[in-house]
């Protein structure tokens, strides 16, 4: 076992430990922090696979974005400090069953992918031994990482590559943000116009504001 393997197994052990902590932690905030650690470990796993873009997206979107979002959501709820009630046995059994099915599916997939990759490698070696190999396999032979940030950046800017999808990303993000704002504000009621009845988001804001003012002991 070389250093790389040892690092991989240590990382996996850390990841699994944090994953268990995420599920088992009684405190919602601690569970969210443990999940953050899990995502960070996954990012390092991606780096070990030389998938730079996946690791970058993991760190920036999941840790920098989604987890911050989750933490905001946790902080928005009032039951922050208290321990969560233990889930019912039926729910726990259901959770274990879902986890087992997912594990079986992923294990099957991993086995198939491993066998497929090995076959492809063998075929590629045979090809390159007999005749000129294709450009992609030549890249792979030369050790060019097709998933590196540099290659990906060139592909994203290339009209023959992924230029149109790249520009469409910004349109998609625009649509996502417009939709998110519309949903979060419940039918266009202004954040400032707090008198709107039935706007759940706004009533939460008012409660939060009142709670903050109370606990800070602010003068009226």
């Amino acid at each position: 076992m070389n250093v790389r393997d040892a690092f991989f197994y240590a990382l996996c052990a850390l990841l699994l430990g944090l994953a268990v902590l995420t599920v088992a932690a009684g405190n919602l905030f601690r569970a969210a922090l443990a999940l953050l650690g899990v995502l960070l470990c996954t990012a390092v796993l991606f780096l070990l696979l030389q998938a730079e873009m996946a690791a970058l997206a993991q760190v920036m979107v999941y840790i920098g974005g989604i987890m911050i979002f989750v933490l905001y959501a946790v902080l928005l709820t009032s039951e922050l400090g208290g321990r969560m009630p233990a889930p019912s046995p039926v729910k726990m059994l259901l959770g274990v069953a879902v986890a087992a099915v997912a594990l079986g599916f992923l294990a099957g997939l991993a086995q198939k992918t491993g066998a497929g990759a090995a076959a492809a490698r063998a075929r590629m070696h045979a090809e390159s031994a007999t005749k000129e190999s294709a450009a992609s396999s030549a890249d792979a032979e030369a050790g060019v990482n097709i998933a590196s940030l540099k290659t990906l950046g060139q592909k994203l800017l290339d009209p023959k590559g992924f230029l149109i999808p790249f520009e469409l990303i910004s349109v998609l993000l625009l649509a996502a943000m417009v939709g998110a704002i519309a949903v979060a504000r419940q039918g266009g009621a202004g954040v400032r116009g707090g008198s709107e009845p039935g706007a759940a988001a706004i009533s939460v804001k008012d409660q939060g504001g009142a709670g903050a003012a109370e606990s800070r002991g602010a003068p009226p």
Partner: peptide, 30 residues
Amino acid sequence: IQFKIGYYLFALVFLVFDVEAVFLFPVLGV
């Protein structure tokens, strides 16, 4: 204390530009 809902909307907007930054990274590299 309970956080204000205003933070939530800010986080929503932030998330969009966060994803934008991820896609700008490989492009700016080249």
